[in-house]
Design a protein around this nucleic acid. Structure first.
Lengths: 137, 137
DNA sequence: CGGAATCCGTGATGATACTG
DNA sequence: CAGTATCATCACGGATTCCG
């Protein structure tokens, strides 16, 4: 989830090694965390529709603070998922878009987001059942 | 990410309303957070392979603490993604498996996890480029 | 407008110990 | 074995301020 420190790969690490998200110190963990982070998912999904400015993203994604959006976008940019284009004008204009790599992940998280939206009621129903059973206990 | 308080739906809420993850107070947000949570993703992916006991999950998912695994599984169970079967034997034996609903999400997060594993090197390369550019600045 | 920097609360996280 | 309880920490995330 954090934007910071990733475990450094040792030089001896063979390029052919299969990354394993189940291994605590595998870099894939950190990447997955960025992608599946609270705002990461929504940012990627939003950018899938089209290129957006910072303030547009802020508006589209309900509830993000400037800080978290900036932080999230930086992490995604560093990971090569998002392209940041800053135009040297006043007032500043910065546009965010998906890289080819980012488009691939975005499609997946977008699908996940849509799936969730479409199954909210089933989950809500499951919760009621669960809570009722717990209360009866 | 939290396991706790979900916004209560008002009775007037029409069942036909399309849930929107971009709305801050939509329940879909919470659901998505459970699914994409750090350990939620890995737990769902692990259960996609087959039914597992608590301690098995703990071993398979590198780095989880007992507390977080229990917490994660409870959230997923409450949301109707995971089925928990406790056998009244000594020593205790509890098996976790996916519900049909859970299987659907699990397939998606599994795909995401595998995609990530397969693109670690591209991301790592992107980071080097990014960091180099930043250092040069 | 698009951030960066700072301060700061609080809730998520994890180690440890305990229980059925 | 499968948790729960307790506690300490720290990073997530919000609010505010400042800058190009």
């Amino acid at each position: 989830m954090s934007v910071s420190n990733q475990a450094q790969r040792q030089p001896r690490e063979p390029v052919t090694t299969v990354a394993d998200v189940n291994t605590a110190d595998c870099p894939s963990r950190g990447i997955l965390d960025h992608v599946t982070s609270r705002w990461g998912v929504l940012a990627l999904a939003a950018l899938l529709e089209d290129t957006r400015r910072f303030s547009e993203l802020r508006r589209v994604i309900g509830g993000v603070s400037e800080k978290m959006l900036a932080q999230t976008l930086q992490a995604l940019e560093r990971d090569g998922f998002v392209h940041r284009e800053a135009y040297p004008v006043i007032p500043p204009r910065v546009e965010y878009s998906l890289t080819p790599l980012g488009t691939e992940v975005a499609r997946q998280v977008w699908a996940l987001a849509r799936w969730t939206e479409g199954h909210v009621h089933e989950v809500l129903a499951a919760r009621e059942t669960y809570d009722a059973a717990k209360a009866a206990r």
